[in-house]
């Protein structure tokens, strides 16, 4: 069982992802802003982060930068409603392992999450 942090300000998406990932046996924490996400991620180590690109006031990339500068190696999947190459490219440069373009199918989400978790260094090892 893994612990996943979902950083997403859209309540609908937040509850959908909690439901789906919870249903798959993961523990899901939720953050609605960059500040909240930083606070949660400093308090404990997660196995995986699902990060929305557009957040109130900031972007997911702002969080990702601070997160990586803090030395965190947790795999991050960036979610964007823009099928924008520059966003994806920037996210990958900042250490995102993969991306999801909204709207995505659950058939795409779960295998991607499983694969990222499988390839990630175990949270307990850090």
């Amino acid at each position: 069982m893994s612990r996943v942090l979902v950083v997403e300000d859209e309540a609908g998406f937040q509850s959908l992802l909690s439901e789906v990932l919870g249903g798959a046996g993961h523990t899901v924490d939720s953050a609605e802003s960059v500040a909240e996400a930083l606070k949660l991620s400093q308090a404990r180590t997660y196995d995986l982060l699902l990060l929305d690109y557009r957040l109130p006031g900031d972007t997911g990339l702002d969080f990702l930068e601070s997160f990586r500068m803090g030395g965190q190696q947790t795999p991050v999947i960036i979610m964007t409603a823009y099928a924008d190459v520059p966003v994806v490219v920037d996210a990958m440069r900042l250490g995102a392992v993969d991306f999801l373009v909204k709207p995505f199918s659950l058939d795409a989400l779960l295998p991607l999450v499983e694969r990222c978790l499988r390839n990630a260094p175990a949270a307990s090892a850090e």
Partner: peptide, 24 residues
């Protein structure tokens, strides 16, 4: 179009996801 895509893609993503969840 870009602005619209963002505004529409979020709710559509939620609808799509829950529809699939119900189906499952």
């Amino acid at each position: 179009a870009a602005g619209l895509a963002h505004e529409i893609n979020n709710p559509i993503g939620i609808i799509l996801g829950f529809a699939q969840l119900i189906g499952q």
